[in-house]
Nucleic acid binder design. Structure first.
Lengths: 212, 212, 212, 212
DNA sequence: GATGAATGAGCCTTCATTCAT
DNA sequence: GATGAATGAAGGCTCATTCAT
């Protein structure tokens, strides 16, 4: 019994450390950017000594990939959950999907900043790219499908591809804006912006947005 | 006389060198990302020897800032020109402004990539941020102003801030998509997407987009 | 009673562990060379956890010295035994001594490799040197003594020092050759080579060698 | 003219630096052994700063390989020269070949020590092994050939392979002895030892050695 | 002005050693 | 006794910067 607990404890402890280091990596990355993130910083942010990161992740590269995976998985799990809880109505599903992107768990400044740091670096690193991209493709495909369903049902004279693309782009743009503290607005503002677009595209399915 | 020519020759040559190095920086940055860009790479890409960059820019930091300024100035000049050539009609002006972002001179993959590399890094570097941001603020202010004018004239039941923000975000998102070769589409596709949104927002001022 | 058994048990176990770790050290050293031998490798080769080596040997240095001592003792015990079993005839004694170097127990590829790894490193490490060297001096002195006796008895017109030195060098050279798998030959071949030299030096005391 | 000199001067300078660093590597290796040789030590021994080694050799590994090549080339060139200058008589050639190994240029304590450090390490490193081994094979083949010729001409009742192997081993053993300062003797002593063996093997072709 | 060798600080990584469990 | 996570020093490598030619 004690042995089992020990084993679990140890194993858990190792997982906990990895988690801790990944969180530290997100912190540092958000603060110092990709090029400014050093192993030493990460270890310090985790309150540990410098050698430990290599012990748990072998390589800086691997630590970063794990961190990226972590962010990507969290992001995907978030919208999966939102979609699954949205019933069977395409308009509800689309709304749930789009708004889920602005869940504070996902959309904290620090995670946004870390994500962006990776994202830019990924453009010249195939290893990262696959983790950044795989999400988006799946997400975009669903957005397109839902747009098609709504347009068909509502008999809107719209080109589904353009509308889906616009919504995709809108989300990405809002994320960027949220991250840039230059023109700060709240998650609620972002959602209102989405709502305004949805109403403009599909007036029969979504109410007007804003204090009008 | 000879002395003056010398001076002019040198000055010209100096400017030429700087330009050459800035272009090389954009190339390398697009290819290798921010963290992968070294002084040696830049010098090699410019066909020059490694010591020369410090001679002309003193510091890597300064070279990068100059490059960023160069991109920002070019970007701003582009939309300024488009705006100035668009007459006095707000709807025309807004269209001209938004479409100017997809001018191939500004929007080449290589410049987009370099811009993004800077942009992400800028989030943790005040020095860069001011060059990235100053543009956007001015640009956004004008978009908002034009949206207000159109909404007022057209008596649209819309919240100008939301619409302006949506258009801003849309542009940024499309830029990102254009850069990411994952889901490739043409500049023309991007413009169509803008057009679709403009029509959705201001149906009396913009025609429907796409092959409908 | 139980206490004593415990103590004995522990002591035995302790000795067993040390032996086990020394053998593991020889293995790793033979496989990876001196510079490639890490505490972790040794522990793994012994099927134990990494902390244990320091527990039993305190220091890497001490582990290596113990390992070297072990090899040196084994080597010395081997030729002592051969010499003691060779009767009182100098020629028999010399033959027994020289051939004992090629006893498979002493001369396995893995022990040769480990020995060489130490030997080279010892040239710049006084601590090791004394263990490598002390043997040789004693061994060489006996070889010289036996050569003197044989030369005197056989009235050979030879300089004992030169002959003894030649035999010493011959043995070392053959060891090296045996270790280098480049030009592989058997222990038997090595012995034949010794025999050929003995016959050349002391034809009245040793028969011709080889299939002539 | 000046330009050409400059160019040559520069190129030469680069070669000179490499040479200088290789010599420094030999020094350090002789003093500290393989595992104790650091880039910093090498740079310091050359009177240069630490970054310079990577500039000229890219990698520690490459520096060491170049150093090994340098030693191997020098060794080979030495015996080639001796062989070529020895006339056409096999006995003269064999003598010249064997004695050339004890040329002070080749056989300085520092070069011997460096060579041995490499040699031991090479046993677990294929990259080094090829440089250590290629020489020996060629050398051994020639020794064997010459022994065959002498044995045939002199009608000695000897097995050529055993004699050649003995001479090979003898040389290696003497090298080791020369390096180990434990039992120091001069190059002249080493040559005497060779001479004693040659006389023992081929009494009609070589005179007795030593002060008899 | 231009070249490229040289410098040296900073980073990633390895590894002997320690220590809580 | 044993385990394996944690520490921290040291080494190799990169790269911005300097400077003699």
């Amino acid at each position: 019994m004690a042995a089992i607990e020990q084993t679990i404890g140890r194993k858990a402890s190792k997982e906990v450390r990895r988690q801790q280091l990944i969180e530290a990596t997100i912190d540092v990355m958000a603060r110092k950017g990709y090029s400014g993130t050093t192993m030493f910083d990460v270890a310090k942010a985790a309150g540990l000594s410098s050698g430990i990161v290599n012990f748990h992740f072998e390589t800086k590269e691997k630590l970063l990939v794990e961190t990226l995976k972590y962010l990507a998985d969290e992001y995907r799990a978030n919208w999966h959950k939102a979609l699954n809880g949205a019933g069977s109505n395409p308009a509800d599903q689309l709304g749930a999907l789009l708004f889920s992107d602005f869940n504070p768990d996902i959309c904290s400044p620090r995670k946004l900043a870390a994500w962006c740091a990776f994202w830019a670096e990924a453009q010249s690193r195939p290893t990262y790219l696959e983790h950044c991209g795989s999400n988006d493709e799946e997400y975009s495909a669903i957005v397109l499908e839902l747009c098609r369903a709504i347009i068909r049902k509502g008999r809107y004279p719209l080109v589904p591809d353009l509308i889906a693309r616009a919504l995709d782009a809108l989300l990405e743009g809002l994320w960027l804006d949220l991250m840039t503290m230059a023109k700060p607005y709240s998650l609620e503002d972002a959602k209102q912006t989405i709502a305004a677009c949805l109403h403009a595209f599909f007036p029969k399915h979504y109410p007007p947005a804003g204090k009008s």
